[in-house]
Design a protein around this nucleic acid. Structure first.
Lengths: 255, 255
DNA sequence: AAGGGCTCGTGCACGAATGCACAAAGTTGA
DNA sequence: TCAACTTTGTGCATTCGTGCACGAGCCCTT
């Protein structure tokens, strides 16, 4: 209905307008991959890399890679490619990895321990500031990481640590039924970014960003495609409800 | 000598196959959430639910939910809503969860143990058929799950288990440097679906689907937005390379 | 039976994301 | 210096995903 009034911005390019450079979300999600591969290449002593080489190493197409990188600026050299170390630094800077972010982890089960002992944690701009749990026989125990060791603290001290040490990111590795409570504690403590490994949908204010990691979802998506592989096309609705009448025998599934 | 020339099966293969009903990939990725929430509602004795209620519980908009569900068929009742149990069953059937899929897990560190002990594993149509590791002092040990316990077997026996017991999905929870080798073993054993927790890009044939779960990526995406929260707009390029000359002082970052 | 109220299903339009193809810009070699 | 070659950066077209708005259909009340 409201026919879009002609925009006066001369070019159709999306970032030209008022607010500088807005990088597409899909691009942001790929930058960490580029960064990791570039780091690996730098460690192998590779000096320059073409978009074609880097793209195949990252599992994307070269056109997509070049477009992604173009949002950061013109950091390549035509006829040559990209300087590995320089480009890696630019991506790190764009992602905000040049100064470390404080991370708190709540839930010290197997999963929590696995995350804490993950190498790439510290080496990629993140610093664990505390481990928390609510279970009495876990609180007080120590978790040894490669260079440091942490004493598990009660969740009641979460806000204190966030305030004092300036944490910015919270990781939830608790069972599902505790996750919402922990999320609310994190929000109240002042965190705006949460990674949630618990299989529940968190309810948080709109200015808090939650990223969900869920094994069950991944498995089920794969199961869907595996099933498609078996049932070539539309032979799905075979034995049940052949005419798909809406209000018909929908209780038949219990039979 | 340099990096192995990766060539990942980029992107989710066009699940079309024939044509008929091809569900969009974005929808497939949300179906597991709907399924989980519906299951929880059914356990609470909820009989019917409107698209608005279900959408809020799943963290999506009602329009998106209805469009997603419309790809499966017309399973709602106008003026009323959806029957919780019935809709849950239809989603489960579409995802292929009505008969369990066999899963093998390679890499029995903290992460592997965490996944195996995950409750929702068996209850959502998946059955663990074996745990594998290459480290001698892990092989032979047992991992206790709620109802069963597994003996860790050497990776050499992977193909045998896949063939004999009919596994369909492989989960990689090894360190990064072992992941590519394990992926190749899985492919050779006949698996077409892999969930990869190791922070590397896997190189597999195009008919194998890999889903990647990566903590570092999630953290870095959050870091990006945290940084944006601080640096309101374009004050990023402050101290370094103010005029952004292409071939200029790009080594300055090392200074 | 008829009308009113509620909610699903979907056509349409818009924005985001991808892929293609090529000009621009740099390097190499004579 | 100039021409041939290589690779980036990007305009354009196409596909994909999302949101709005409304007709269609079901239930309930009178």
């Amino acid at each position: 209905m409201p026919l879009p009034d002609f925009r006066e911005s001369a070019g159709p390019l999306p970032c030209a307008g008022g607010k500088g450079n807005s990088i597409p979300e899909a691009t942001v999600a790929r930058l960490p991959i580029y960064h990791r591969v570039l780091t690996a290449m730098a460690e192998q002593g590779i000096i320059t890399v073409s978009s074609e080489e880097l793209a195949t190493a990252c599992g994307v197409t070269s056109a997509k890679l070049r477009k992604d990188l173009s949002y950061l600026g013109s950091y390549g050299t035509r006829g040559v490619g990209y300087e590995v170390e320089f480009l890696g630094y630019q991506i790190a800077r764009e992602l905000g990895l040049t100064s470390p972010w404080g991370v708190v982890v709540v839930g010290v089960g197997n999963l929590g321990r696995a995350l804490v002992s993950y190498r790439g944690f510290a080496s990629r701009g993140f610093r664990i500031l505390g481990l928390f749990d609510s279970h009495p026989d876990v609180v007080g125990s120590t978790v040894a990481v490669v260079d440091r060791s942490f004493t598990v603290r009660p969740v009641e001290e979460l806000a204190e640590v966030v305030a004092d040490q300036g944490a910015h990111i919270g990781v939830i590795t608790t069972p599902a039924d505790a996750a919402q409570d922990i999320a609310e504690r994190m929000v109240k403590a002042g965190l705006h970014s949460i990674v949630n490994f618990a299989p529940v949908v968190l309810n948080v204010p709109t200015d808090v960003e939650v990223r969900k990691v869920d094994l069950a979802v991944e498995l089920q998506v794969l199961a869907f495609h595996e099933q498609r592989r078996k049932n070539p096309a539309g032979s799905v609705v075979t034995e049940l409800d052949p005419q798909r009448s809406v209000s018909g025998d929908r209780k038949a599934m219990n039979a």
